[in-house]
């Protein structure tokens, strides 16, 4: 049985690729598409460093076969800032401003989860934020500044635009 080409829309761009069945989505993103913003921490679904948005919902790219994403939108951190590469997304701005980034290894996954949360709930409480990012480990910041950064992006927080 021959596997049909995989069709995925990565950061808004259509890709039709011949991909072997045993290819993990994370490897496809990092190696075949050279989008190395998505990180591999544990490779076991436990750390969240590999979080991408599949049709808008956060998932672990390390635990998905590439073909499971067939026909889906895959959004990685590279697609978040404006395409010209001149302005960061408000969530990225907030992470920088609040000091929510130290080594930065968890940041792409963390920001993707935060983006999905804010898209579905523009006014999350602190508990909503903590619950949403519970699967994203950070070994540096102690989380407070991350929660601050996400809170700062909530509608009505008085900061920047509201992306709901």
């Amino acid at each position: 049985m021959t596997l049909p080409p995989l069709h995925i829309i990565v950061n808004g761009e259509d890709h039709h690729l011949m991909v072997p069945a045993n290819r993990i989505l994370l490897d496809l993103i990092r190696e075949d598409l050279a989008l190395t913003g998505t990180k591999e921490g544990c490779g076991l679904g436990k750390c969240g460093a590999c979080t991408v948005l599949l049709d808008g919902r956060p998932v672990h790219a390390c635990l998905l076969l590439a073909h499971q994403a067939d026909g889906c939108r895959v959004d990685t951190i590279e697609g978040l800032a404006d395409p010209a590469g001149t302005t960061l997304h408000p969530i990225q701005e907030a992470f920088v401003e609040k000091g929510a980034i130290q080594c930065g290894f968890c940041t792409p996954g963390m920001i993707n989860t935060a983006k999905a949360l804010l898209d579905e709930n523009p006014t999350p409480t602190e508990d909503d934020i903590k619950l949403a990012i519970a699967g994203n480990l950070c070994r540096c910041t102690g989380y407070h500044k991350i929660v601050d950064a996400v809170s700062a992006c909530a509608c009505g927080s008085g900061k920047g635009e509201c992306h709901g």
Binding site: G45, G48, T51, L54, R57, P58, V59, H60, L63, L64, T113, A116, L131, A132, A134, G135, N136
Partner: peptide
């Protein structure tokens, strides 16, 4: 169960 990511998949 698991995390939001695990629950989504």
């Amino acid at each position: 169960i698991g995390s939001w990511q695990i629950r989504n998949a």
